[in-house]
Design a protein around this nucleic acid. Structure first.
Lengths: 138, 138
DNA sequence: GTATGTGCAAAGACTTTGCTTTGGA
DNA sequence: TCCAAAGCAAAGTCTTTGCACATAC
């Protein structure tokens, strides 16, 4: 049983065929798929899966903190499975010329985020950090 | 003539009555108004201003870099006039309990952003950095 | 005078939801 | 069995756009 399925079971969710497929699609995705893309990938396994179910499933997973919802400056949302170890946390650099999303890690950032929260008297529960830029041409 | 009007004139935009009102609304706003809010404030000066014009104006200003478009995790966009001096750049902390948006500055962040870009071989032209959290209760 | 800008309403894009049926526990 | 979940289609929300009229330069 996959980690995501396990977590869903713990949360009391019924493990329907559709959910199994969607969870597997998410776990197998190495990019940051949109709802449409998740749905397409799911449909290639089970044609009957509807986009409404994909929306509902992603919404639940997001509330459970099992997936992260991103806005990379487009008109729609993208998703990825939440990294479960602290050292797997990463941020995103979007190449403004190609649309490519590059993941990067930065320890300093992690520290800074909590330091800033402390200074302002806040418990930081979430954050967005995205860079937009283009390759430096030699 | 306001700074924003000046910049618009330089960009070759016609200075219509509607634009004057919208520019003034933006310059006078100390928060991060949504399109609807900008439109309401503009209408209180000139009832005839339509939301389509507000959308079009904000879109132009955003392309010119004169306003910044933000996504604070809501379903709609918010805007603010772009700070024109480097030392006025700031980021945002959204109070998840009240929805309040707190601005803060952080020099370290500015450095880090460009350092990360350099390390990855990218010219960073834009970035999003938002924190979400709640007040620490004593 | 002419190109740009505006208002209105319709269309578009993405997302949510009501209702009926299906199926997991 | 029974309630959560799915499919479908309609509706909702935010944003963009086509068109006819208005207006800044």
């Amino acid at each position: 049983m996959s980690k995501l399925m396990q977590r869903c079971a713990e949360a009391g969710l019924k493990m329907t065929e559709q959910r199994k497929v969607i969870l597997k699609v998410l776990e197998d995705s190495e990019d940051h798929p949109s709802v449409d893309t998740v749905c397409e990938r799911a449909k290639s396994v089970d044609q009957s899966i509807s986009i409404a179910t994909v929306y509902r499933t992603l919404s639940i997973l997001s509330e459970l903190g099992l997936v992260l919802k991103h806005d990379f400056g487009e008109t729609f949302a993208r998703f990825e499975v939440t990294p479960d170890a602290a050292h797997e946390h990463h941020h995103h650099l979007i190449d403004t010329e190609t649309g490519e999303v590059i993941e990067f890690k930065n320890e300093e950032m992690e520290h800074l985020i909590h330091k800033i929260g402390e200074q302002l008297g806040y418990d930081i529960v979430e954050h967005n950090f995205e860079l937009f830029g283009h390759k430096i041409k030699k």
